[in-house]
């Protein structure tokens, strides 16, 4: 107790200086403090190690492009998952919602026909709408019906995939407009940076501002930290949770659309572990499963660590199966660090 009440004047001055430092760039300090810095260093370390082991193959524009393109769709999902986990929730349905949105969007574009931007925009809106719908269902059941998020989203995980299979009869939909594949799917800006990567990072940037610099983001943290306190502060907790899950659903829908553009098919069977990959990325990025703590920058690092590992192992000739082992270990390490942080905070 006495150590917290007494403070030397010199010490106080240093703290004042620190606070003033924060005043100058509060948003940046909040982005850069916490565990995301540490996890960023791990990512940099991995890149350095692979660069040393195989400089010519690993350090090239085309390889960077590969890694980033592989990570782009997952990044969009992980951005939404960051919001969900910051509220101390979870969403297992993302992969199925992604597939469902992709299937319905493909059908819609097929029905409209043609190869114009109009068709593509219809597809995009349909994908976003499908995702939004599932998200609202999730959010409503979680906040109003008080069914645990794990159960609700496990249920919709099965339902969304089931409906996707019912719609297609289990056969992948391949009628995707060429224009979509040629531009968003495989096109590059200035022949260098893939559209997919630009879209994913733009989404991450917009949602980073939403999470860290708006009331919406602040309420997301508050609910994850202490739901009752949030309620007493006049925050409409139920409504906010529905919005968060709706956002998650919409981003899953967007990811479904991007996946459709990239592979020019619906890849129905290819997303059964998207949920776990997204959760792992978010948690590796320093977001606490207990809620109330997390950064979007950390999530970006968390998405790229598995992607870089996968790519690096292939390049240096290690069996790529080691990637799963390594990602598992990093995941456990990340949660352990979160536990350590919590323990040290509550000791006082």
């Amino acid at each position: 107790m006495s150590s917290t009440t007494e403070q030397e004047p010199e010490h106080g001055d240093v703290l004042v200086a620190q606070v003033e430092e924060q005043l100058r760039a509060p948003a940046w300090t909040r982005l850069l403090t916490g565990s995301s810095t540490f996890i960023g260093l791990i990512l940099v370390g991995l890149i350095v190690v692979f660069s040393i082991l195989s400089y010519t193959n690993f350090v090239s524009a085309s390889n960077a492009r590969n890694v980033a393109t592989d990570a782009a769709v997952l990044l969009v999902v992980a951005v939404g998952m960051t919001f969900v986990i910051v509220t101390a929730g979870i969403d297992l349905s993302v992969g199925s919602v992604l597939v469902f949105a992709g299937v319905v969007a493909a059908r819609a574009m097929h029905a409209v026909g043609g190869n114009s931007w109009g068709t593509i925009i219809v597809g995009l809106l349909v994908a976003l709408g499908c995702g939004l719908g599932w998200g609202v269902i999730n959010g409503f059941l979680i906040s109003k019906a008080k069914v645990p998020a794990l159960i609700v989203t496990l249920g919709t995980f099965g339902m969304a995939l089931g409906f996707a299979l019912l719609i297609t009869g289990g056969v992948d939909e391949r009628s995707v407009p060429f224009k979509l594949v040629d531009t968003i799917g495989t096109g590059r800006v200035g022949n260098q940076v893939p559209y997919l990567v630009i879209i994913a990072f733009a989404v991450a940037a917009v949602f980073a501002v939403l999470l860290h610099a708006t009331r919406f983001g602040r309420y997301t943290f508050a609910i994850g930290s202490n739901e009752e306190a949030a309620r007493r502060a006049g925050i409409r907790v139920d409504r906010h949770l529905i919005k968060v899950y709706a956002l998650m659903g919409m981003l899953s829908g967007l990811a479904g659309f991007l996946s459709l553009a990239r592979f020019s098919t619906t890849t129905i069977g290819g997303h059964s572990t998207d949920n776990l990959q997204a959760i792992a990325a978010v948690v590796i990025g320093g977001t606490s499963l207990f809620g109330g703590v997390g950064t979007l920058l950390g999530t970006i690092f968390g998405v790229f660590i598995p992607a870089v590992l996968q790519n690096g192992f292939v390049i240096v000739g290690v069996q790529p199966f080691w990637q799963q082992v390594a990602v598992g270990a990093v995941l456990i390490l990340a949660v352990y660090l979160d536990q350590l942080r919590r323990r040290s905070e509550y000791q006082r």
Partner: peptide, 26 residues
Amino acid sequence: LALADNLDVVQNMFLGREETTSLRRL
């Protein structure tokens, strides 16, 4: 008390009544 543990002192004091700039940023 009804404070949110993970939020800092300022965030708690303004919880639910945050001040925003013209661009709806905090």
